[in-house]
């Protein structure tokens, strides 16, 4: 019988600093059989562990179209993520998964895509964005609207530049608090609506960010004419087992780890459990 709780070793091949508290870890399994058979979908997450510190669920930020490695973009927030930040190139990290459902891919081919993102919320979306970029001809116009607290909190700065250069692809950035040398836009991500046209026709939107930002972005998209079922979002909860057993991550009768983390705004609105702001 497969032991779902047992993690497998992976070696840290590269570490990239994204912001003062966020790093992207590129890792890959040491076991060749596992490495060859491993597969995942855009939007899924894995349980990462440092034996002794514990394990934490982290979204996969790399695209399934790019084989032979996995990337996790991690903010040092709790005990486990802080321990992961102390690891260096060549160290081992332990993984189990992948878990959860995924962002749609086949179903959104031929459409215009709007990515509305806040802060480190770009990590799970980057998996889908790069998958789309690797299949660019199957999609129409793409807009990435990305907001962060400060210029330093913008993740994947190199890639944002690269995406901009791809035809029919726009990247709009904004920050809440500018710092010296920031010549770009200032304001929350929904402020971008004033500057760029959001057209719901033949389009879907994918949203990720802190709860408050998701709410405002989803409402704004709705105002622009998006249907609730065309707005996708990835939700978060404190998780433990990742396989729908431990109980921690439920919203109503759904487990975020198993039935999510990707939900449509339609599904989200159907939840009885409302957060104070949501």
């Amino acid at each position: 019988m497969k032991n779902e709780y047992f993690p497998y070793p992976a070696v840290i091949e590269d570490i990239k600093t994204e912001t003062t508290d966020t790093k992207t870890f590129r890792v890959w399994f040491t076991d060749k059989v596992l490495a060859d058979s491993f597969d995942y979908q855009q939007g899924q997450f894995m349980e990462l562990s440092v034996p002794g510190a514990g394990e934490a669920p982290i979204s996969i930020s790399s695209s399934p179209s790019r084989k032979g490695f996995l990337e996790f973009t991690i903010r040092a927030a709790g005990k486990v993520t802080k321990s992961i930040h102390m690891l260096k190139k060549g160290d081992y990290i332990y993984l189990r998964g992948p878990y959860g459902n995924s962002f749609p891919f086949e179903d959104i081919k031929g459409k215009n895509l709007y990515f509305v993102v806040g802060g480190i919320g770009l990590a799970p979306l980057r998996s889908l964005i790069n998958l789309v970029m690797d299949n660019r001809n199957n999609f129409r116009h793409i807009k990435v609207l990305y907001g962060a607290r400060t210029p330093d909190d913008l993740c994947f700065k190199d890639e944002l530049e690269q995406w901009k250069k791809i035809p029919d692809t726009e990247v709009w950035l904004t920050v809440d608090k500018p710092s010296a040398g920031w010549g770009g836009r200032v304001g929350v991500v929904t402020e971008l609506w004033k500057e760029t046209h959001i057209n719901p026709e033949n389009a879907v939107s994918i949203v990720c960010g802190p709860p408050i930002m998701i709410k405002f972005a989803a409402d704004k998209l709705q105002e622009s004419g998006f249907k609730d079922k065309d707005i996708f979002m990835t939700l978060e909860r404190y998780m433990k087992c990742g396989i729908g057993k431990c109980g921690h991550c439920n919203i109503d009768d759904k487990f975020i780890c198993k039935d999510g983390p990707v939900f449509t705004y339609e599904q989200k609105k159907g939840f009885r459990h409302k957060e104070h702001i949501f």
Binding site: Y5, S49, P51, G54, E55, K240, C241, K245, C246, H248
Partner: peptide, 10 residues
């Protein structure tokens, strides 16, 4: 009631 937590002790 079978909710559980997972932790490490070293």
């Amino acid at each position: 009631c079978v909710c559980f937590n997972i932790g490490d002790e070293q």
